[in-house]
Design a protein around this nucleic acid. Structure first.
Lengths: 229, 229
DNA sequence: AACTTCAGTTGACATGTGTTCACTATCACA
DNA sequence: TGTGATAGTGAACACATGTCAACTGAAGTT
């Protein structure tokens, strides 16, 4: 037990570098990229995007701060990736819903159910979108608005197959689709802070609201017609 | 001009302390308190609440960082004051709107007009609410939700005076009022990022959506009735 | 086997943060 | 007139941040 104990051996530094055994270079890179994105997402369930730091994200991902720059220019770039990813899973969900066997005769109840389930399964993504939709970063807001617009427009097209709506103008269909989309998005956002039971009640209420809206369909006459006669 | 030039005279330190001439102690205090709130509000038009710092706020208010603690325990406390203030001006606006001579025969167009004007006049407050409604601070979210709930409930009561609605259950009226409130709030939030012309178009669209909704009123039969017969 | 590429590292920097502390000058009251 | 309360100050703290520069070592290429 004298001087100079174990200078050279050094048991093992064992870098924080995650296990990348048997992974090619680019696969390994993709792995830590994913870790960064997932780390950010985790932090985002407690804080809003412009209050989380680059260093926090890298810490969460188990990687040194400077490694971040190998994957993203900016935190903003990471944010845009998250928007894309969030709407990706949402899109998948909707596509599945459409190809599902129609378990309910009621399209409204079915759609609400799909959104509710999605909020349960992709809570972090949905929270991110709800937060940043009107959040502090311009480009994120724009990106989110754009994606929601796409959904609404797609819905507007689909609505044409319903009675009466088929004969409406495109503009009227968009107006209608916008109303439905917003009601859904609003429900999703509200669900995020609710307990299981509260959520069930709220979903029920939203279903009623949507049913209510549909009652108006047969009676709508476009106001876009400028003729006052 | 040798050594020791003007040691004692010292033209004037002239502290950053704002002009408080002829103001009583408590009036002066109230003044800097207001400066802090206004400073925060200004910063909040660019960033979300949990990304602005105490020091930024005091800098904006022209006051030293430590002065903050003479007025608020916390940044969170400041945030809650802002929520209160925001809904205060909104409430005033709505009350005025109700006592206004009815310039339009159409209640829907009138209401939309009122909200649009309010967004113009109180942009900062509205932006704050839109941001923090689903933002990173729990207590702010709760406070905002509570205030919106109050508005919706108040509206639910008022709606009883309309044909048909008077005979609905309270629950149905709330469902209806919630739909209207959310459509309005959503419009307000969207207007914030728009140009003058875009805003006009969007307001027009929202008016149509609300008109659409009202078409359903005569045909609504409550689903709250659990009897399937 | 030697060479290049590059995802990751450490260390350092200038700057910003919330909060504590001891202080000062004025208002308000005795 | 003197005395206490208090809204404000500045300096200092321990720590966190984004980013730069120089490096290391394994994977891929020749």
């Amino acid at each position: 037990m004298g001087t100079l104990i174990e200078v050279t051996p050094r048991p093992r530094p064992e870098r924080a570098r995650p296990a990348r055994d048997g992974a090619s270079r680019s696969e390994a890179k993709e792995l830590t990229r994913k870790a960064l994105v997932r780390g950010a997402l985790k932090l985002l369930s407690r804080n809003s995007f412009d209050s989380i730091s680059l260093r926090e994200v890298t810490r969460e991902a188990g990687v040194s701060p400077t490694a971040f720059y190998r994957h993203f220019e900016d935190m903003e770039e990471l944010g845009l990736v998250l928007v894309e990813e969030s709407f990706g899973t949402l899109g998948d969900m909707l596509r599945n819903a459409r190809s599902d066997p129609e378990l309910y005769e009621d399209a409204v109840a079915r759609s609400v159910e799909v959104v509710v389930r999605h909020v349960h399964e992709q809570t972090a993504h949905m929270r991110f979108i709800a937060r940043e939709r009107y959040g502090g970063i311009r480009r994120l807001r724009r990106a989110i608005r754009r994606e929601l617009q796409l959904f609404a427009d797609e819905l507007a097209v689909d609505l044409a197959q319903f009675p009466f709506v088929g004969r409406w103008s495109t503009e009227d269909r968009r107006m209608f689709a916008g109303l439905i989309t917003e009601t859904m998005v609003h429900m999703a956002a509200e669900l995020l802070d609710m307990s299981e039971e509260e959520a069930a009640v709220y979903a029920q209420r939203t279903t009623q609201q949507l049913r209510f809206i549909t009652l108006a369909v047969p009676y709508w006459r476009s106001g876009a017609d400028p003729e006052p006669t």
